[in-house]
């Protein structure tokens, strides 16, 4: 691909890099793993860029590649850090159950979800409709709705169990 295409691609990735970071944060605890995954997603996107026809939104197309890459990505064996949270979310106060505490607790529970459930939650958090999530994941909107309900119940139960409500 020529220099103009490369420049155009780099500019698009620069504008949408938050999407890649979100995927990396949800799938990798370790900073080095996240960097590896970021590089892999960027490379896979670049390799597929010639197939991008502009029919779908670039962000949706990028999500497909980023999630496909993250789900099929084999992490290097490293000494894992304790939690996804420790890297970028502040520690919670001991006695208070603030909104932020609950968010941190929820994040910890999301970290325990399966790869597929994480992908659905990520798209849901980015306000994708069930139809759009279904299109990215390759399943029906009904199936997405059922899974999302189950994920919400699971998270709620875990949070309640940990007495954070």
């Amino acid at each position: 691909m020529d220099m103009t295409t490369e420049q155009e691609f780099v500019s698009l990735i620069s504008q949408h890099q938050k999407i890649i970071y979100k995927v990396c944060h949800l799938y990798c605890k370790d900073k080095n793993d996240r960097d590896d995954l970021f590089q892999e997603i960027t490379l896979q996107t670049w390799k597929s860029y010639k197939h991008f026809k502009g029919e779908a939104k670039f962000s949706t197309w990028l999500y497909k590649i980023a999630l496909n890459t993250a789900i099929t990505h084999f992490k290097k064996v490293r000494k894992q850090k304790e939690s996804i949270i420790s890297d970028y979310i502040p520690e919670r106060a001991e006695d208070s159950h603030s909104k932020e505490d609950l968010s941190i607790a929820l994040f910890k529970e999301i970290d325990l979800l399966s790869k597929i459930e994480k992908a659905i939650v990520l798209l849901y958090l980015d306000h994708y409709s069930y139809n759009d999530i279904g299109e990215v994941m390759g399943i029906s909107a009904n199936n997405v709705a059922v899974k999302m309900n189950r994920i919400k119940s699971k998270l709620k139960a875990q949070i309640n169990k940990n007495d954070l409500y």
Partner: peptide
């Protein structure tokens, strides 16, 4: 507390890191 409230936290956290320059991406 809703799952949706997490979006803000995630965005805030990622803002600190998602700052790769075009040169770095190239």
């Amino acid at each position: 507390m809703e799952l949706d409230d997490l979006k803000l936290l995630l965005d805030t956290s990622i803002d600190c890191e998602a700052n790769k320059s075009e040169k770095e991406i190239s």
